[in-house]
Nucleic acid binder design. Structure first.
Length: 198
DNA sequence: GGGATCGGACAATCAAACTC
DNA sequence: AGTTTGATTGTCCGATCCCG
């Protein structure tokens, strides 16, 4: 929060409708636990994205805008030639998906196709999620592309189970949502981990 | 204090699966 | 053919690190 000109609508890259302080966005360590069906109270406005960030913003993982040069490149005095759209790679085709789970009107699961617990060779192990930014990301993306291209990639419905099969990460008993709430909204219907009042 | 870095949440896209 | 669903890919928030 120190870099004020990087944040907030009044002079930085931030989107105007973002909450100034989101207790749940702050890394993976704090997550609120809600009952499985989120109510309308838990909905917040969507974060808008540009269709194609420029290479500079992409590399910095910062907000871009459709104009070229974008505001951030102008701010950091990149030349217009340096503010160019990043290249999107083509989505891979032919991935098998397996049968669908059925949902009710509110989006909750009403059927889970029996006990589908897939274990597929080549699935990235828990804890090996891709580094999304910077050179490490490019290296990871390259290696993953090779894995998928060779047909050893993940085509199952669910991620691998932990080795001891003690947890099924995609079978939620609770709805975990990074939703900021005003004090007045926290009165009922929500649970916080460890008795936290947040 | 301000910029850089980076983990991970969030959003958009689109093809496979499904329904009629 | 049209709709639904989930995998994939991309954006960027926000915490932390680093440097002057």
């Amino acid at each position: 929060m120190s870099s004020s000109d990087e944040k907030s609508a009044d002079g930085g890259d931030d989107i105007p409708d973002s909450p100034t302080s989101d207790p749940l966005q702050s890394s993976a360590t704090s997550v609120h636990i809600y009952p499985f069906f989120p109510t309308s109270q838990t909905v917040r406005s969507k974060r808008s994205q540009v269709k194609n960030a420029c290479t500079n913003c992409q590399k910095a993982c910062k907000k871009c805008d459709p104009a070229r040069p974008c505001l951030r490149c102008v701010k950091y005095r990149f030349t217009p030639e340096e503010c160019v759209d990043s290249q999107r790679k083509e989505r891979k085709k032919g991935a098998k998906r397996g049968p669908y789970k059925k949902r009710d009107a509110e989006g909750g699961l009403i059927e889970y196709m029996g006990n589908i617990i897939a274990q597929s060779d080549g699935l990235p192990q828990p804890g090996t999620s891709p580094p999304p930014c910077g050179p490490a990301f490019a290296a990871f993306a390259g290696s993953m592309a090779v894995e998928y291209a060779t047909g050893t990639g993940f085509y199952g419905q669910f991620p691998l189970l932990p080795s001891d099969k003690s947890e099924y990460p995609h079978h939620p008993q609770f709805y975990l949502a990074p939703v900021p709430l005003s004090a007045g909204q926290r009165g009922e219907g929500f649970m916080y981990p460890h008795g936290s009042s947040q």
